[in-house]
């Protein structure tokens, strides 16, 4: 017994060490697999959270549009921007709503911050929105304080401006620019932007620089006002 004890002790010790090592190895293998699986799950949860965050932001934006819709009290449709102009000559967006949703040519479109444009082409389930920054666009506007009227125009790569404001009109920088309603497209009193500067133009007019209240280059959803049927 005394002779066998040290030998047995070492053998048993070695065997149990190997067993522990083997168990650790198996655990490590499982841990590695588990780790990879957990990493995958975390990635999946992260994507889900990002999706939810994006959805929350979208709901927030739609809520703002719903509030705007309620405050205006006019029949309207919320539409999502699904594309932009396929040429770089025009400033337009493609919307996911069309004739079926009640949209028609010349329906004005707004964002939460102000006027963004009007519908120029309508198909059954989509429409083309011409932005107020397009070179062919024109919006009848008036200045909030001076009540001077003019037409908001845009030039490629330049800041929008108001044409046909009389040179005798007193224009204040920072003054609100509102729709005048005279173009019979945009209802009167909608916010378009703010006056930034004014300089003399041809003949008896001045050219009034405007910074738009809505960021038309980052539009995602818009509120399109339906046209009231003419009696």
């Amino acid at each position: 017994m005394e002779v066998a004890y040290p030998f047995l002790k070492h053998v048993v010790g070695s065997v149990s060490s190997v067993a522990v090592l083997w168990r650790d190895y198996i655990d490590l293998r499982h841990a590695r697999e588990e780790n990879a699986e957990l990493k995958g799950q975390i990635e999946q949860y992260r994507r889900t959270v990002l999706g939810y965050e994006e959805r929350i932001r979208e709901i927030g934006r739609l809520q703002v549009l719903s509030d705007l819709e309620a405050s205006l009290g006019l029949p309207s449709v919320k539409a999502r921007v699904i594309g932009a102009d396929p040429t770089h000559w025009y400033q337009s967006r493609i919307l996911d709503k069309g004739r079926e949703a009640g949209l028609a040519r010349d329906c004005p479109a707004l964002s939460a911050d102000g006027v963004v444009g009007r519908i120029v082409q309508v198909s059954r389930n989509s429409s083309v929105l011409q932005l107020i920054t397009d070179v062919d666009s024109g919006v009848g506007v008036l200045l909030e304080n001076s009540r001077a009227q003019g037409v908001l125009k845009s030039e490629a790569g330049h800041q929008p401006f108001i044409e046909y404001v009389g040179s005798s009109e007193e224009v204040v920088v920072g003054e609100k620019v509102l729709t005048s309603g005279l173009d019979q497209i945009y209802p009167k009193g909608l916010l378009v932007g703010y006056v930034t500067d004014s300089k003399p133009a041809k003949q008896v007019f001045q050219r009034v620089g405007v910074t738009l209240s809505a960021n038309v280059s980052k539009l995602e959803e818009v509120l399109v006002l339906k046209k009231e049927p003419r009696s």
């Binding site: 594309g83 396929p86 040429t87 000559w89 025009y90 337009s92 493609i94 082409q121 083309v128 062919d136």
Partner: peptide, 9 residues
């Protein structure tokens, strides 16, 4: 035609 149909022009 495709480009024009998706543009305001």
């Amino acid at each position: 035609f495709l480009q024009d149909s998706l543009s305001p022009g």
